[in-house]
Design a protein around this nucleic acid. Structure first.
Lengths: 347, 347
DNA sequence: CTCGCGATTTAAAACGTTTGCAATGGCCCT
DNA sequence: AGGGCCATTGCAAACGTTTTAAATCGCGAG
């Protein structure tokens, strides 16, 4: 029950506690023979270090924190599921545990984050889904607490560690793909929430349009609050039933693209014959929804694994310059995009 | 950065460290006036106790552990979302943090649980979704580690702390409701996985049938692997398209009941005119799916909150007798059930 | 033969709490 | 006035590690 202590292990081996501690840490000051002897004994006796004692002296908890963002009804969507899985996998390689905290009703996400930081329950935190002006980032930077963000700020002067998908280039690629298929009238279904990636993705589209320099290209944009299903459906339909309907519609992320496909089908449009649809994220449902959504693989899981490594480095080495990484999304060409229709079908 | 220590606080107040410690713990041996003075100082100086030091001497980590069960693609479904929210809320009242652990690819759920227990990263754990013979329970009981299960075993001789929904009585109530509406031919869509609640719920139905003593009652049962969507749809359709189709179909839980409704609609049946459907759990989607699923509120969130309290008691008081609680589900009558049809429509 | 140096190892302090036990002081009782 | 008791507080050990500084040992050089 009580578990073997370092002292007991040292007594068995007839060496001092310090030697055992160093040996287990792999300190080369300890003779190789001794290190092996200690490792062997630790294994056979099933020694498990006391994390509390270790934390007390080293100041490290061996935890990395993650506060689940408060959201709509779904609590954990496919993005968070993927992300958490990757994070756990990345951290386990470093022998670090992932402490996931929930936000109780009536408390704010920030207050939970503050608790994690102030009670030193974690040595660093991961912050997902960055908003345009994010109080979590402000707090963490102010405290000088180690963290890595998934996403970035528009204001690139703020310097902190982040990893983000290169959605600017991905949305440019989406435009090129559709332009080459003859499309000239585009529709973007976006969100009205203050999330950074909204701007980046739209910018990717606009940059590609101006690069092309074709004055005939039109880009319509509609948006709705992020988790408001009703408003989203309404926005999508306003575009589908518009006087002049785009021939290619792009969802800011897959959930929106899927809604476009559903509503278009409901309106009697055939995809991709009457309308091309492209999304972003490649969530599981994208493959199943007929006829198969063309989208971009955001590599959320890989990103999370990478973030784990970055955070460990930040915690251990405290690098002077902020770490930043851009992950290139990969086009997943399925069946929801095609050549521009000869005639635009009325509905 | 470093944070105020007890020693520093004591120096400011000109009392001993021990006194401050006791005062903050609310020890009545300390004069009330002193306790107030200490509490005041702690507040104004923003004293935050060092958990590592506390854990070292008390042996308590201040964490309760939860290992996310490995599952299909969805990672966290509505049950787990509700459950975790309730758990977090219940624990925060006791100043305890919830440590949620993920299972990295290639490792088993049990091995993660063992890690949590052996490294003493938590003082107790909550075990959800009990199987018919559950290796997690076996392990925890063997180690004598504090835990509370959500769900129970069929073998009631095994004694451990659990809380479960009284699904036996709920399924009996469902039968009575439908029987009184004239239904005699029932269909149960179940799962083939070795989960305890499968038996309990089916038993609830059968008990109610025999209580009624009507030889005309028929109960058909089909089942499919839990997270196998294709097999589930096939099983449901085999019942819908059977030679003699039940007039009332019951899903072991809401996801199954919703599938019944979808497939029945697809087959051209109208609900509840041609077919009555009843589920269990009252997940969010149950209210939205037309025409509104009649189901039972399992009170998952309340249950989790209650479990939090039970676990705290187990950790602190180590009661001699196991704690057990049965939560009565509440019927949520929506529009998916109705009187038995006069004639059974062919499809 | 002695000294010095490098390679190992040991001793002991420190991390910040909790808690058993001893000490202090005031007050009442005799 | 002395003693005893209670309420309150102080002292110091203990929890199991990590880490700094010092000790030890063996061995080759002078």
């Amino acid at each position: 029950m009580a578990g073997l202590t370092l002292r007991e292990l040292a007594a068995k081996l007839d060496v001092s506690v310090g030697t055992v501690s160093r040996a287990l840490a792999g300190d080369t000051a300890i003779a190789l023979k001794t290190r092996e002897r200690v490792a062997e004994a630790a294994r056979t006796h099933g020694y498990i270090p006391n994390r509390a004692a270790r934390q007390l002296v080293s100041g490290r908890s061996g935890f990395v924190g993650f506060v689940i963002p408060v959201r709509g009804p779904n609590f954990i969507d496919s993005y968070l599921g993927e992300f958490l899985t990757g994070l756990g996998e990345g951290l386990v390689e470093h022998g670090i545990d992932l402490f996931i905290a929930t936000v109780p009703a009536g408390r704010s996400e920030l207050s939970v984050l503050q608790h994690v930081v102030e009670a030193r329950r974690a040595d660093g935190v991961v912050v997902p889904r960055i908003g345009e002006s994010d109080e979590r980032l402000a707090y963490l930077m102010d405290r000088g607490f180690p963290f890595v963000a998934h996403g970035r700020l528009l204001d690139s002067s703020a310097s902190f560690n982040w990893l983000d998908a290169d959605s600017v280039s991905a949305f440019g690629e989406a435009f090129d793909l559709l332009y080459d298929l003859g499309h000239r009238h585009f529709g973007l279904v976006s969100i009205s929430d203050p999330m950074t990636f909204r701007h980046l993705r739209e910018r990717g589209l606009r940059d590609a349009i101006s690069r092309r320099g074709d004055p005939n290209v039109i880009l319509d944009v509609v948006s709705a609050p992020r988790f408001d299903r009703g408003a989203t459906v309404a926005a999508v339909n306003s575009m589908i039933h518009a006087e002049r309907r785009p021939t290619a519609m792009i969802g800011l992320f897959d959930e929106l693209a899927l809604t476009i496909m559903e509503e278009a089908s409901r309106a009697g449009l055939s995809i991709p014959r009457d309308l091309s649809v492209v999304g972003f994220d490649n969530i599981a449902a994208a493959a199943y929804a007929p006829p198969g959504l063309t989208t971009f693989e955001a590599r959320t899981r890989d990103s999370a694994r990478e973030i784990a490594g970055m955070l460990v480095e930040v915690i251990e080495k405290k690098p002077a310059k902020p770490l930043t990484r851009l992950i290139a999304p990969k086009l997943v060409a399925r069946a929801s995009h095609g050549p521009v229709p000869d005639v635009v079908r009325r509905i």
